[in-house]
């Protein structure tokens, strides 16, 4: 019995030392909640997480503390037999009710936050206004009721995201949106199930082929937000990252124009090239080639081509 106890003691001591060494480093670096939110719905999610995490930590700690206390206090000793522990009347019902009350409270809270997070918020004053940019400049209240949020069609495919803007312009890999503007994402997939997720801008939602799904966000600050597809989608899954660039409204509009012009230019260039080729070789291959050409020409905004392509 001596040797194993010694080993266990040494192991515990080593672990304690390790923990002591790691603790200061860890305390400053370890996140206690998901990334800081930059959208109202992401804030809701963070609130939900923080509140429920406290309940969970209390429950988990309580059980472990009770366990340790029991082990320390009630070791078998010579001459001390087990005591008969009796609960009061209906102790089971009381504990059950307590647990039920906690569950109910968490449920109600979760329900409220769920509804809250799903609720579209109107665009802010600095955001893109549906009617026109003038209303905001004139200092008028934006028309709430008939205001249309910016709606972007998000289409997942192995292994990139394609974003189509209301005017038909599109981009790959990177979603560019104006700040303080409610953006509704209509999610769709052309192949397998993908999961759109940018932690700072809200939760994750599936892009399933043949089924429409929706989420929204309203970025409160300009900048670049990184995310990552969160549903396993095949060999190049880690390369399927999501990137949202939030610009000011004028920058956004300029970008949109530029992007449209780029696409137009690229398309005409390719068209010309293809026609030239056709004239030269007299080979009919336009039918199959066009969609693929479109994909290639979106690269200017996209950066590196995805791994699997």
């Amino acid at each position: 019995m001596r040797r194993p106890r010694l080993v266990a003691l040494c192991a515990t001591a080593a672990l304690a030392l390790l923990a002591l060494a790691l603790l200061p480093a860890a305390a400053s670096a370890i996140p206690l909640a998901p990334e800081s939110p930059h959208s109202p719905n992401a804030e809701d999610l963070r609130t939900a997480y923080s509140a429920v995490a406290i309940v969970a930590v209390i429950l988990g700690l309580a059980i472990n503390a009770a366990l340790i206390a029991a082990v320390v206090r009630f070791r078998a000793r010579r001459g001390v037999g087990p005591a008969r522990v009796r609960g009061g009347r209906q102790i089971q019902a009381r504990v059950g009710m307590m647990m039920g009350a906690i569950a109910l409270a968490v449920f109600v809270f979760g329900l409220i936050v769920t509804v809250e997070a799903r609720d579209l918020e109107a665009s802010g004053p600095q955001g893109l206004q549906a009617s026109s940019a003038h209303t905001a400049q004139l200092g008028l209240d934006p028309p709430d009721a008939d205001e249309e949020p910016l709606s972007v069609q998000v289409s997942g495919q192995q292994w990139l995201w394609r974003y189509e803007y209301p005017d038909g312009t599109f981009s790959y890999h990177e979603l560019v949106v104006p700040v303080d503007t409610t953006v509704v994402l209509a999610l769709d997939s052309t192949d397998v199930v993908h999961r759109w997720w940018v932690p700072a801008l809200g939760g994750k939602f599936d892009a399933v082929p043949g089924r429409a799904n929706e989420t929204w966000f309203k970025a409160d600050e300009e900048g670049v937000y990184e995310g990552q597809s969160a549903a396993f989608s095949g060999p190049a899954y880690p390369t399927m990252r999501a990137r949202v660039e939030v610009l000011s409204v004028p920058d956004y509009e300029a970008w949109l124009e530029q992007q449209a012009a780029d696409i137009q230019a690229a398309q005409t260039a390719v068209q010309a090239q293809v026609e030239e080729q056709n004239l030269e070789t007299q080979v009919q291959e336009t039918a199959g080639a066009n969609p693929a050409v479109d994909d290639f020409e979106s690269e200017p905004s996209a950066g590196a081509s995805p791994g699997g392509e």
Binding site: A48, V52, A56, I63, N64, K204
Partner: peptide
């Protein structure tokens, strides 16, 4: 198991799972 199931408790709340699920 207590630690794990306490974690699962947080994840059964929809808004938490939207952020934490599949991480």
């Amino acid at each position: 198991t207590a630690i794990g199931l306490a974690g699962e408790l947080t994840q059964s709340v929809i808004p938490v799972a939207w952020q934490i699920a599949n991480t």
